[in-house]
Amino acid sequence: MDDGATIPAVSVTGMDGSPIRLTDLPLPAVIYFYPKDDTAGCTREAQDFSVLSADFAAAGATVVGISKDPPSAHAKFAAKHALTVTLASDEDGAACEAFGVWGEKQMYGRTYMGIERATFLFGRDGRLVRAWRKVKVPGHAQAVLDAVRAL
C-alpha cells in the first residue's frame, strides 16, 4: 500500500461480533495489524495504544488493532489486560490481504504464514499518510501519535 492510497473497502468484526467497515471509520484513522492476542509483543503494543487512547481521541484519531484472532479471543485479551483500544477480527484474511500484511515469516528456523506487524495512518481525506512496516513495539504508539498530531 503506497502513500495516497485510500482505505480498502473491507470489513472486520468487532469484539461484540458487529461488522466494522474500515471505510466508515472516523478520520483520521490509525489501523494497526498484529500477529496474535496475548503474546508478549502484541500485548505490549495494545497496552501502549491503550495508554495513549485519550491522546489519540483528543487529536481526533480513531485507532483499531486487527488480527486474525476471533472476536471472543479479543474480548478475553482486552479484559485480561484492561485494554481500551478497539480490537477487530479479520478471520477470513480479507483486510490482511488488502493491506498486504499477510505473508511468509520465520521464527526459530521455522517458516510459516502470518501477519506482519504494521501500522497505517490515514488522514482526514481518507488517504494513506504513512505506513510503518515491520514495527518494533517500544515507542511505536507514541511515534504514531506524534504523526497524528502533525497532520
Rank of each mutant, 00 (worst) to 15 (best):
M1T: 12
D2P: 08
D3G: 12
G4F: 07
P8C: 12
V10T: 13
S11G: 14
T13L: 13
T13W: 08
G14H: 08
D16R: 07
G17H: 00
S18W: 00
S18V: 06
I20L: 14
I20Q: 02
R21N: 14
L22I: 04
T23M: 01
L25N: 12
P26T: 15
P26D: 15
L27M: 11
L27V: 12
P28Y: 04
V30S: 06
I31R: 01
Y32D: 07
F33W: 00
P35C: 07
P35N: 11
D37W: 02
D38W: 02
A40H: 03
A40E: 07
R44T: 14
R44P: 00
E45C: 11
F49H: 09
F49Q: 06
F49T: 05
S50P: 11
V51W: 01
A54S: 14
A58H: 12
A58L: 10
G60C: 06
G60E: 02
A61V: 03
T62Q: 12
T62K: 09
T62I: 09
V63A: 14
G65L: 13
I66W: 03
I66S: 10
S67I: 04
K68R: 15
D69V: 14
P70N: 11
P70W: 03
S72P: 00
A73W: 00
H74V: 05
K76C: 07
K76Q: 15
A78Q: 14
A78Y: 02
A79Q: 15
A79S: 15
K80Q: 15
K80P: 08
L83F: 06
L83C: 09
T84G: 14
T84M: 01
V85Q: 07
T86G: 13
T86S: 12
T86L: 07
A88Y: 07
S89A: 14
A94S: 15
A94E: 10
A95E: 01
A95Y: 00
E97M: 02
E97C: 00
E97V: 05
G100F: 01
V101Y: 01
V101R: 03
W102V: 10
W102R: 13
G103P: 03
E104T: 11
K105N: 07
K105E: 05
M107D: 04
M107I: 00
Y108P: 02
Y108T: 02
Y108N: 07
G109F: 00
T111W: 00
Y112N: 07
G114A: 12
R117N: 13
A118W: 02
A118T: 12
F122M: 15
G123C: 08
G123H: 07
L128K: 05
R130T: 10
A131E: 06
A131T: 09
W132D: 08
R133L: 04
R133V: 02
K134E: 13
V135R: 12
V135T: 10
V135I: 10
K136S: 11
K136C: 04
V137Y: 05
V137P: 02
P138C: 05
G139W: 01
G139E: 01
H140Q: 03
A141N: 06
A141F: 05
Q142D: 11
V144M: 04
V144T: 08
L145Q: 12
A147E: 05
V148D: 09
R149E: 03
A150M: 00
